[in-house]
Simulated assay, not measured.
Amino acid sequence: MTISIRLAGAADADALADIYLACRREMSYAPLAHADAAVHAWFAGALLPSGRAWLAEQNGEIAGFAATSLQDDALWLDQLYVGVGHRGGGVGRALLEQVLAPPAPACRLFVFQANQRARRFYEAHGFALLSLGDGQDNEECCPDALYQRPPDAKE
């Protein structure tokens, strides 16, 4: 199964929002902070126009996406979601490789503490835990974990 990565465009907003919503609904420990319509509007009006979102296609379907931002001389992985039917096939890894393509600076991300699958994934790809938070700084008020991967980390 070939995975291809490309920049996401305006026409992809609904498909990416649908993947995000489906994945987030699986997270019973972190209820959605916004209604579906607001999420779709945010993807179309804010996330995709930023130009820092990639999507993965597998077998002609959008399989997942990743979005980044630059803050404080660090690359932030703000979103990385893989659709349910595409997990375990390298989609997340391919997206992460795109995000971390040289010359990537240090990369940081937040993940919910209860999301053990995501935490294992990031740790396996060279991210180290920096701190645990009580959730007061995120919209879901859900305990989170801050991770960082140095620019020269090896998997």
Results as ranks from 00 to 15, higher is better:
L80N: 04
D144Y: 01
V82R: 10
S69V: 05
T68M: 03
A10T: 14
T68N: 03
L96E: 07
Q116F: 06
S28I: 12
T68F: 04
L47V: 07
D137I: 05
G92W: 04
G9L: 06
G83I: 00
A124V: 03
E140G: 05
D18P: 01
G92A: 12
L96I: 09
V91S: 06
A35I: 05
G60H: 06
I62N: 08
G45L: 04
L100Y: 02
H34V: 02
L16M: 09
A41G: 08
Q116Y: 01
A38Q: 15
A104Q: 11
A124N: 11
S131Y: 02
D72N: 14
I62S: 12
P102V: 11
R120E: 14
R24A: 15
D152W: 12
V84Y: 12
G83Y: 04
D73R: 14
Q116V: 10
A124H: 12
A10C: 06
P143I: 03
I5F: 08
A118S: 15
Q79E: 15
R117M: 05
D78E: 11
A145V: 12
L70K: 10
A153P: 00
V84W: 07
P103K: 07
G83C: 03
A56Q: 10
A33E: 13
D36H: 08
R119Q: 05
P103Y: 04
I19V: 15
M1Y: 06
C141E: 13
G135C: 06
R24N: 15
E123T: 11
F110C: 13
S131C: 04
V99K: 09
A124L: 09
E139F: 05
V111T: 15
R119D: 00
A56I: 07
A128L: 11
G45W: 02
I5G: 07
W42L: 02
D73Q: 15
P143L: 06
M27G: 03
R119F: 01
N115Y: 02
A63L: 09
P31T: 02
K154N: 07
G133T: 15
F65T: 05
P151E: 10
Y29N: 08
N59M: 13
